[in-house]
Amino acid sequence: MENNNENNDIDLVFVCGYKDPAAIRELLTKIGDRWSILLILSLSKLHQNRARFSTLEKSIPGISQRMLTLTLRNLERDGLILREVFPEVPPRVEYELTALGASLITPLQGLIDWVTVNWEEVTQAQTIFDSR
């Protein structure tokens, strides 16, 4: 499969290493959104990779209830977390990483580690670029 834009010499299968580059783009867009990475990493740090909604909300500063709900729903749909409702009054809901979700912890932590090591250099490059 080749890219049909101006650069026809680039083989997207080669670039992505997978037969369906669109699938890779779609999943990276979902996993790499503003809140998913933080949510997955937060769940990984909490007891037994489980937490209630309110605990997750407190662990991710700046996230709204609506965005937390949407992100949890999307991660559940993709099989990365499980939602368990307990038959109590009031109902208790807990979220847990699945094995698939837990398999993302190492690569995501690697990305966070890269940012930690390189953030100062990135901001310096931005400052130089912006001053031109």
Rank of each mutant, 00 (worst) to 15 (best):
Q109V: 08
W114N: 04
G62C: 09
E57W: 07
W114H: 05
S36N: 03
I128M: 13
I63L: 08
D11M: 10
E121Y: 12
V13A: 07
Q124Y: 11
R50A: 01
K45L: 09
A23W: 06
V93C: 02
Q126W: 13
V115R: 14
K58F: 06
A23S: 12
R73Q: 08
A102T: 11
E6W: 15
S36K: 05
A22M: 13
L72G: 01
S42K: 01
E2H: 14
A99T: 09
A23K: 10
P87M: 12
D113H: 14
L41R: 07
D78R: 04
T55V: 10
W114A: 05
S44Q: 05
E26S: 14
N74R: 14
I24E: 00
L27K: 14
D130P: 01
T98C: 05
V85W: 03
K58W: 07
K45S: 08
K19N: 12
L82R: 06
N5L: 13
R92G: 00
F14G: 09
V15R: 02
S103D: 05
L12F: 10
R83S: 04
I37R: 10
G110I: 11
P90G: 04
I31D: 03
S64W: 00
L104Y: 10
T106Q: 09
G79A: 05
D113V: 06
E96R: 14
V13M: 07
H47Y: 09
L56C: 01
Y18I: 15
E76A: 10
S42M: 03
L100W: 08
R73F: 03
V117C: 10
V93A: 01
S64A: 04
L100E: 11
A22D: 04
Y18Q: 13
V115P: 02
E84L: 05
S59I: 03
L12S: 08
L97R: 00
F129D: 08
K45F: 04
A22R: 12
A22G: 07
G110K: 09
L39N: 03
L38K: 12
M1N: 11
I105A: 04
R77W: 07
A51H: 00
V89L: 08
A99G: 09
E84A: 07
S36T: 08
R25L: 13
Q48C: 05
N4C: 06
W35M: 07
V13R: 07
T106A: 11
N49V: 02
N49K: 13
N74V: 07
Q124E: 12
W119F: 12
I40E: 03
L100A: 10
S131W: 06
L80G: 01
R77S: 10
G110M: 08
V13N: 07
I37H: 01
S36C: 08
Q48G: 03
I40A: 00
L28S: 07
E121I: 15
P107R: 11
I37K: 02
L38W: 10
N4H: 10
N3F: 12
W35S: 06
I37P: 02
Q124C: 12
Q126I: 15
N8W: 08
K19W: 12
L43G: 02
T116L: 13
P21C: 07
G101V: 01
Y18C: 11
